[in-house]
């Protein structure tokens, strides 16, 4: 038996909304330690990795008697989650050898209980080994700022060059019709921690990435006040949105290089 009771259905809604356009079907791997999801987009350019820990406060109850994999069409899951109120408590339930995933939505005042079943899918996807590495540079910034930068620069070109150096981080685009650049300096005088821009730098990095994917990742902006960008030269960037009281959602994006 698997049963996970999440206090805020809005968190699950936001996660699925941020994934469903790039990742059509995905396996939720459930174990006693929590729920993980790893999926790669069809063009092998982007990968998402979700971790929801069972011992965090976001779950009111969590039970997973044996490890199970729930293969779900994310478009369908998005439709089901739209049937939940934002303040509803959502319970996910499945048997040990499941064909069906059940969603139960309890309204805050317990006056309305709704239940939906969806059929599970066999999804043949191999898990990739993502090495734990120390990155040359980790940028922490407000998530809405990163969203704005990606949106602004995507007006002029397909690729952004991210340049991390000791003064801060530069985002540059060069298209056929024009170019743009946004410089962010490290902030030290901002009151709120979530408004700060910090750059942990071991080595400077200059790397280009497809804006189409970065813009898609920023659909997760409402999950978190801050976003962390981890970069190393000639390796995929990690765009991480911490999820309070649950864990995190990470996106990996392969770089573009000059031939």
């Amino acid at each position: 038996m698997f049963e996970a009771k999440m206090l805020q259905s809005s968190v699950l809604k936001k996660i699925i909304e941020s994934l469903k356009d790039l990742f059509a079907d995905a396996n939720f791997d459930c174990s006693s330690s929590g729920i993980t999801l790893q999926d790669m987009d069809s063009s092998h350019v982007a990968l998402c990795y979700l971790k929801l820990r069972s011992d965090e406060e976001g779950f009111e109850d969590y039970r997973c008697d044996r490890n199970i994999t729930l293969g779900v069409n994310l478009g369908l899951m998005s439709k089901i989650l739209k049937c939940a109120g934002n303040d509803d408590v959502v319970t996910l339930r499945a048997e040990d050898e499941p064909n069906i995933l059940t969603f139960i939505f309890d309204s805050k005042n317990s006056e309305r209980v709704s239940k939906y079943d969806i059929k599970l899918m066999e999804i043949d996807s191999e898990l990739l080994g993502i090495p734990d590495t120390d990155y040359s540079c980790v940028v922490k910034m407000p998530s809405h700022e990163f969203q704005r930068i990606c949106s602004n620069l995507s007006q002029l070109g397909d690729s952004v060059t991210i340049d991390c150096h000791k003064e801060g981080v530069d985002f540059k685009v060069a298209g056929e019709q024009g170019s743009g650049a946004i410089k962010l300096k490290q902030t030290t005088s901002v009151d709120k921690e979530e408004d700060q821009v910090t750059v942990q730098l071991n080595e400077p990095v200059t790397q280009s990435f497809a804006l189409k994917f970065l813009c898609a990742f920023t659909k997760a902006t409402s999950l978190s006040d801050t976003v962390n960008l981890s970069l190393t030269q000639d390796t995929p960037v990690v765009v991480e949105y911490p999820i309070a009281q649950h864990g995190y959602l990470r996106f990996y994006l392969a770089p573009k290089i000059e031939e």
Partner: peptide, 13 residues
């Protein structure tokens, strides 16, 4: 001209 690299190049074991 930039070329998009494949993620499998990094993560495939």
């Amino acid at each position: 001209q930039l070329t998009q690299l494949d993620l499998l190049k990094y993560f495939k074991e």
